[in-house]
Design a protein around this nucleic acid. Sequence first.
RNA 1: GCGCCCGUAGCUCAGCUGGAUAGAGCAGUGGACUUCUAAUCCACAGGUCGCAGGUUCGAGUCCUGCCGGGCGUGCCA
Length: 579
Amino acid sequence: MLESLIRQAFKAPLEKLGIYEEDLAITLEKPRDRGHGDLSTSVALMLAKRLGRKPRELAGELAAGLELDRDLVESVEIAGPGFINFRFARNYQIERMLAVWSGDALAEIKTGGGKRINVEFISANPTGPLNVVSARAGAFGMTLCRLLDAVGFDAHSEYYVNDAGRQVNLLGASLRAQFLQLRGRQVSVPENGYEGRYVEIMAAELLEQDALAVQAAAKAFDNESFQRVSAPSGNADDWCALPEADSIRSFAKYALMKILAWQRETCKRFGLRFDTWYFESELHETKRVERTLETLRKNDAVFEAEGALWFRSTAYGDEKDRVLIRADGQATYFLADLAYHHHKFQRGFECAIDYWGPDHHGYIQRMQGGMRALGVPAGWLEVEILQHVTFLEEGRPINMSKRKGQFVTMDALIDEVGADVAKFIFLTRKPNSHLEFDLDLAKAQSNENPVYYVQYAHARICSVLSKAGEAGLVLREPTAAALQLLDHEAEWSLMRELIRLPQVIVAAAQAREPHRLTSYVLELAALYHQFYQQCKIVDPEDQRRSESRLMLCQATRRVVATALALIGVDAPERMQEKE
RNA sequence: GCGCCCGUAGCUCAGCUGGAUAGAGCAGUGGACUUCUAAUCCACAGGUCGCAGGUUCGAGUCCUGCCGGGCGUGCCA
């Protein structure tokens, strides 16, 4: 890379001044203002004080001592208080663009060495359909996985299913009550039970199903190898005849199966694919919970008090100690979560990234404390908090509560605005800031919708390319000789943006900020639209110029498509008719 | 009370890890289709980056303290 060449070039002049140090950071950045070149460094400013010299003077001396290939760097200038600005030679930019085109530039950034990284997201309780909050997590998690893969890691997407807790039982009891009501019995839904429409739907469905139908449903479900999930034998009326606890368990088992099937189907519709669905019940059955507890004990991180067993999380910066085993002998969710992440670590991941909802941020301290107590290196577990999404309809926020069944489901969101629009809008904001999602705006297929802006750029290119064919022009693979003919500012602005793709991917992956991709592709689309406006691409009168411009179009198309693929959004060849 | 997140144009938000004159979109005003898709483009207007200190050659960005908003703070899940 040119950056490292420039850094190396500083060695000679710095040594001459007797201030060369091995670990001296020579920061190079892309100036905001084009007038300041393509790369800029402030080393002179930083060193000036230490040396007691005037920054500009020092910058001049450093710049004079730089030996750089004119074919790569066109000019070196001193500017402002003492910046040294570099302007790339056109040949260098062309070379980079060809590398992007050929894929070499994307191969260069695969530096992860195939190390496995676990990315856990959504992990919603299996007690109802997925809601829109999960959609935001899905967009981030899946895109981060693709970004990590793009930089050479082996990302592993994972969904944790809390199937062992009290909530699933409560769901079973709620379903049972609804079913019995339909059978004309006077049974009330338990306190804090689930009352959403989806429970009614399940109950109504059970009314019609005999034992064979139940098994058939289970079989269909098992097709996709969820070995831990199966249907209870018999049908709903048989389950009602069982003692209450067993009866509830049967309904719960059935409900779990149904809901997971919905959740999985919804994820699929949203383009989410999970390598692993990890079931909490497995942790208990394989005694991992006990073993994790043993490790904590061995590491002297637990103590007994008030009849319960506690984790000494205050020793790890938490504000108070936390219960692991309640006085009634039950393990807390915290302990199960520790066991789960302990196992994640043991499974050999380089690091683990979790996306959590905003209501869990108070949980980070104790979780990371727990991991350290288990001997996991600090920083191994990274937690990204996704802030709330407020959905607006007719300018008013929609309130959401899962228990009452009043919430916008992820399916409804996909139905109304489409998966692509939803994903893109989620990824226009950074994860830890609140997001206001205007449903009417997203639905309106208008120019206010950023997704169409980008997709339109792609469709426009496709259209131009096909028009070129009709005009008798030939689409050729980009070559340096042809690209050298480009001389319009709009063409070079576009090219400069095109060659940024690899570094944007690297930065987005490293910072765990997938939203940088949407910013990038929006900017790229804007530059293409400007180029289109200012430059006549298909011009039979000037074939050579047309061919060069068509190469730029092809490269832009490829980069837009690559960026959209990372975001998980379709790159259409033509836009659908506007209504 | 304590902890976390947020506060940037009328509205919704970027701001590339501390750089030079703070940027988009929408809304507003005015322009550009006999032309490769006008779902586009151009121009104008819009700012005390919540407030006050501090660190630094340099702060929207880092630190401290206030103010305002959101969330959390269970032997709940």
